[in-house]
């Protein structure tokens, strides 16, 4: 059910990434290509992560929700996701190893209510957290997002 918020080509798997910046580049690239976000939104996400406390997008369980303010460059509300085989360190912080990074592009503070409800229900499910951790290719990731739990 959650999969309807992911446009074509936005569910990604990589064995590894060089660092968190590359993870942000990879997870946002399809949304930029599809015109859902502007490159300014990518820059805003990186800037936000670099700031003190910027690792607040680490939700726990190795899952991060990369996002910034709508006015930073969101064109259309959407999601993308990147799972990596080897965790990277968010903001180069050893306290924040991340293996799954979602990118949230929300057009305004309210219109993404149903998206956030689906995402919160999905991510707060311990079974889904386990399944996400074990994913080893994009097809598996798509299947997990499609299944209603």
């Amino acid at each position: 059910m959650l999969d309807k918020y992911f446009p074509e080509g936005t569910v990604l798997y990589r064995d590894d990434v060089a660092d968190w910046q590359e993870a942000v580049d990879v997870v946002t690239a399809p949304l930029v290509k599809l015109g859902r976000i502007r490159t300014s939104y990518v820059d805003a996400i990186k800037e936000s992560i670099r700031k003190p406390g910027g690792t607040y997008i680490d939700l726990g369980q190795g899952i991060a929700l990369a996002h910034s303010r709508p006015e930073a460059g969101v064109v259309a509300t959407s999601l993308s996701v990147l799972k990596v085989g080897r965790p990277f360190l968010l903001a180069d912080s050893p306290d924040h190893p991340i293996s799954t990074m979602f990118c949230l592009a929300a057009q305004d503070s309210d219109s993404h209510l149903s998206l956030m409800q689906s995402l919160a229900a999905f991510l707060s499910d311990a079974g889904n957290q386990d399944r996400l951790g074990k994913v080893s290719n994009a097809e598996e990731l798509k299947t997990i997002l499609k299944e209603e739990r």
Binding site: G53, Y56, L65, S68, S124
Partner: peptide
């Protein structure tokens, strides 16, 4: 910090 991602969730 943004008031619409982590806090909303």
């Amino acid at each position: 910090s943004t008031g619409l991602g982590s806090s909303f969730m």
